[in-house]
Design a binder for these strands. Structure first.
Lengths: 150, 150
DNA sequence: TGAAACTGGTTACACATGGAACCATTTGCC
DNA sequence: GGCAAATGGTTCCATGTGTAACCAGTTTCA
């Protein structure tokens, strides 16, 4: 007989739910309290150390497609959180970086986000945390292999 | 100095990406090959053993809100995959179950989904798999606690 | 140098999703 | 019994997202 499929033990389902619940719960911080969407938050987090990069690169780093990046950038810029400076080696592109207000906002959100994550991870030992990230890593590379051979 | 936030080691980010990639990759099977959305697939999986339940209960089991369930049900019904029978204890509700076509489709998709999952999990040992599911469990209950105390 | 292919980024369109309003029925309670 | 509150489900609306088309600028290569 065929092995029974049980959603509760089906990784895609469990993983989706977990991600969704995490996002929802964490969004309390940046969405509700700071009015920043997930996409915007990712950009803040990427440029938070003061770096300056093109939208393209932001997309690569944050794993977002260019449309999503473009929109989040527009929105951040309209709030004066992001600065855009023409790129002198390629006039189609622009270099993006946080304005000082952007930096300020980032410095307010980041510690909260980390504190929140710490709370979430509290029931896991150090070894478990490492193992968790390690498995995520493995699964992602595995997905890459599977896609490649498809 | 404040601990640096690095997206690559930030669980919400990693977990979201993983879930997204898994969904995307798996959707090849049920979306592209069988024309079934994620919501619809979850319903198939829930009723696949022949059970019969109300939309409300499906929502609880599959972790979907009632709007999403309602739409997926309509869609499955329009394809003749789902049957709806009035519930005699409550005339607002209806009892849903797979039609024989629905059962048939389920029996075609489920083994593929399981095979796919097996491939994905291949790089993880049995112990690792158990640990992974265990941690997901812990994180979800932790999220529950955090929400409750918020 | 000049045309074709390519690339960074934006816009237009289609679609899935969730919250709120809604309808019909059921439950709780006096 | 009867009225208010709650509940199962559907519909409406606003929003976020991805694909495809698009524009402007850049690379390639004959």
């Amino acid at each position: 007989m065929t092995k029974k499929l049980n959603l509760a033990q089906f990784l895609p389902y469990r993983c989706n739910n977990l991600a969704e619940q995490i996002s929802f719960s964490l969004s309390r911080i940046y969405v509700e309290r700071f009015g920043v969407s997930v996409a915007q938050w990712r950009i803040l987090a990427t440029l938070g150390d003061g770096s300056e990069m093109q939208a393209k690169e932001i997309g690569r780093v944050t794993n977002m497609d260019k449309v999503r990046v473009s929109r989040a950038v527009t929105s951040l810029r309209s709030r004066g959180l992001l600065e855009r400076k023409p790129c002198d080696t390629d006039s189609r592109a622009a270099l993006l970086s946080l304005s000082s207000e952007g930096q300020h906002l980032y410095r307010r959100i980041a510690p909260e986000a980390l504190r929140w994550e710490e709370q979430l991870l509290q029931p896991l030992s150090h070894a478990e945390r490492q193992s968790l990230f390690g498995m995520i890593e493995k699964l992602e590379t595995r997905l890459g292999e599977m896609e490649a051979s498809a």
